[in-house]
Design a protein around this nucleic acid. Structure first.
Length: 119
DNA sequence: CCCTGATTCGC
DNA sequence: GCGAATCAGG
C-alpha cells in the first residue's frame, strides 16, 4: 500500500485534529502507527505531543503557562506533593492530548450497545 | 506496564 | 520513500 494523496490528506487532517498516530493508523487501515508516524515525519509534520524533552517558554509568568498546562490532577489534592500533569494541553482542552483522551474517552459503537438496551 | 511520538535502520 | 525497529519520555 502506497501513500496516495487521498491517504496523505486524511493523515494530515486527522493528525491536525489531534488524532494520535495509532488512531489515525486504525482509521486509515492496513497501516501501523509506525507507518503513520514515519510518513507524518517525512511530510514535515510531527507537531503533536511528545517531542520528549521540550524547552518551556521561560520569561512568562506561571499564570500564563498554566492556561496551556494540562490540568490533570495527579495524586491527592490534599497530598503535599500534589501536582498537575503540566504537559501542553490541547486547544480548548484543559488537558493534554493523552489525558484528554483518558478524560473524554469517546464511546465508539455506542449504537450497538444501545440496541441491546432496547431489548 | 501502559501509552505517546521521534528518531534510526534496513529494505 | 516506506515501514518496522528502536529510543526516549510521560
Amino acid at each position: 500500500m502506497s501513500w496516495t494523496e487521498e491517504r496523505i490528506g486524511k493523515l494530515r487532517e486527522l493528525w491536525g485534529q489531534g488524532m494520535s498516530a495509532s488512531e489515525i493508523a486504525e482509521l486509515l487501515g492496513n497501516v501501523t502507527r509506525n507507518a503513520v508516524i514515519g510518513k507524518a515525519h517525512r511530510l514535515g509534520l510531527s507537531g503533536r505531543p511528545s517531542p520528549i524533552k521540550k524547552k518551556p517558554t521561560r520569561g512568562a509568568t506561571i499564570l500564563s503557562l498554566t492556561e496551556r498546562m494540562c490540568k490533570w490532577p495527579v495524586g491527592d489534592p490534599k497530598h503535599p506533593d500534589f501536582h498537575f500533569c503540566g504537559k501542553p494541553a490541547l486547544p480548548g482542552m484543559p488537558y493534554c492530548a493523552e489525558h484528554a483522551a483518558l478524560a473524554y474517552q469517546p464511546a465508539k459503537k455506542r449504537e450497538e450497545e444501545r440496541k441491546f438496551s432496547v431489548a
